[in-house]
Design a binder for these strands. Structure first.
Lengths: 230, 230
DNA sequence: CGCGATTTGTGCACCACTTCACAAGCGCCT
DNA sequence: AGGCGCTTGTGAAGTGGTGCACAAATCGCG
C-alpha cells in the first residue's frame, strides 16, 4: 500500500517522542487517516498488535521498513543537476529516510565535474557503469521535459527498474519498470481548481453539489456565463 | 478532477505541435490514461467535442483553464527559502503554467533581504500584509517539518485558503482550507517497495498474488524468514 | 442526397477501496 | 480467579471510480 510510508514517518515521530506503544486511533491521527483503514492496512502485513494495548512502535517500524525494502539503505541515481536537481541533491530528507544519493549525472559537459554536497557530477554516458558499480535500482529524473524520455531510456538500459520523474511529461518504459511522477505545477493547479470552486460558491445559491463548479447550466465556460439567481 | 491538469499539459504540447483537433484516443495517449476515462472526465465539463472529429484543442484548453481557475495568473506565497525553497523559487514550470510567485518569506533574519530570481525574501511577520497586498490565496510550505504547522497557522490567519505542503508532516487546518502534501521521500519509499516486491518475486514460485510481497506464510517479517520452495 | 466511416457521450456492470460495527482477545483491577 | 474496559482484527455494507460496449451524431464522399 502507498500509505505505509506515511505510517512509518508517523511512527518515527512517535518513537522519538518516547512512545513504546500506540493505538490504532493514535497512529491514525498522526498519519492523518481513518483508524479502521489503518488497522486494515496493518492487518495485511499479518501484523503484531495486541488487543487492549495497541501496537509496539519499534516492532511495527521494523515490520514496515522490511516490507518497504528499507532494511538496507538504497542507492539512487539523480539525473539532471539543474535548479531542482541541485535541491534534491542537497535534500536531507532522503538520507534520513533510507536512501543514499549514490550518483549525480548530467548531460551538460559544463556541469560535469561540479561538486555538490560532497558528490561530483558525472556525465550521463557513464550511467551504465555507475549503475552497476553502485548497485543502483532507482533513478530520479530532474531534467527538462524534452530530455526526460531519453534519460529514462538510458536509465532502463543501464539496469534501473524504478524511476521517479519530476519532468512534466509521460514516460513510456518497458513492462517491469515502475514509474512515479511528481509534477509540482500540477499540484498547484489542483489547488487553484479548489480555489476557483470555493470562489464560485461564495454567495451563490446551492446548486446541489451537482458537479465541478457552482456555475448554473452545467459549466457554461468562459464568456458564456449568465446572470445568477433567478 | 485531479486529472484535468495532466490533460491541460498534454493539450499544450499538442497545440505547440500544430494540432488543431485531437481525438480522445490521441489525447488519452498523450496524457497516459484510458480513452474512455478521458471522455468521461471531459463530459463532466459539459464539453465541446464533435463526434466524428474530436476535440478542438484551443477550445478545450480554454475550457480546462477556466475550470481550473487559471484564466488569470494566480499569485502564490512561498514560505521557507532553504534548499528546496530556493529550487521552487527558481522553478520555471510555475511561471509557465499559470502561477506567479509573488512573495518569498522566511523566519530566519539571516535570509531576509536575500534576492532570489528577482524577488527579495521578506520576514514571515509581514505575511498578513503581503497576502493582502498581492491577493494571495495559495501558500507553499517548504520549511522543515518542525516549523510547518506554525507556518500553516500563520498562512491561514493571513487569509490563505490553499496550501501546498512539502514538509513531511500532517497539517491541521480549519475547514474550508485545502491542503495538498508532497513528500519526496515517500515517493522514493513507494518505489523501494516495488523494488523489494520485484526482488522477492524473482525466481520464487508463484504465491497466487495474494498480497503485498511474495513471502510465504503471509509476510513473516525480518528475522523470521523461512526457507522457500517446499 | 444518402451512406459509411469515425468519434463522442453514456448506460451498465464490475472492481477496489472505504467505513461501520462488532466479535474476539488481552491486560488490569478487585 | 473473575469480571470489566479497552483495543485489535475482520465481516459486511456502502461508495466511488473504471472500463467496456454501444447508440447518437457528425463529416466526407460518391
Amino acid at each position: 500500500m502507498a500509505r505505509l510510508p506515511e505510517y512509518l514517518r508517523a511512527l518515527h515521530v512517535l518513537a522519538e517522542a518516547g512512545n513504546d506503544t500506540v493505538s490504532s486511533e493514535g497512529l491514525a491521527a498522526a498519519a492523518g487517516v481513518n483508524s479502521a483503514k489503518l488497522r486494515k492496512d496493518l492487518s495485511h502485513l499479518g501484523s503484531y498488535g495486541t488487543r487492549g494495548v495497541g501496537y509496539d512502535v519499534a516492532l511495527l517500524i521494523d515490520q514496515i521498513e522490511f516490507v518497504l525494502g528499507l532494511t538496507q539503505r538504497r542507492a539512487v541515481a539523480l539525473v539532471g543537476v539543474g535548479n531542482l536537481g541541485h535541491a534534491l541533491a542537497g535534500y536531507a530528507g532522503f538520507a534520513s529516510r533510507g536512501f543514499r544519493i549514490a550518483a549525480l549525472v548530467d548531460a551538460d559537459p559544463e556541469r560535469v565535474g561540479e561538486e555538490i554536497n560532497g558528490l561530483v557530477v558525472r556525465h550521463i554516458d557513464e550511467l551504465t557503469r555507475i549503475v552497476a558499480e553502485e548497485s543502483i535500482a532507482i533513478g530520479v529524473i530532474a531534467t527538462p521535459a524534452g530530455a526526460a524520455q531519453s534519460v529514462a531510456d538510458q536509465l532502463v538500459s543501464a539496469g534501473v527498474t524504478s524511476i521517479l520523474n519530476f519532468a512534466p511529461c509521460v514516460l513510456s518504459v518497458p513492462e517491469g519498470v515502475d514509474v512515479r511522477k511528481v509534477d509540482l505545477a500540477i499540484e498547484l493547479q489542483i489547488l487553484s481548481f479548489h480555489e476557483h470552486r470555493k470562489a464560485s460558491l461564495t454567495g451563490l445559491p446551492a446548486t446541489g453539489g451537482s458537479g465541478l463548479t457552482a456555475l448554473p447550466g452545467g459549466l457554461a465556460g468562459p464568456g458564456t456565463q449568465e446572470a445568477v439567481g433567478s
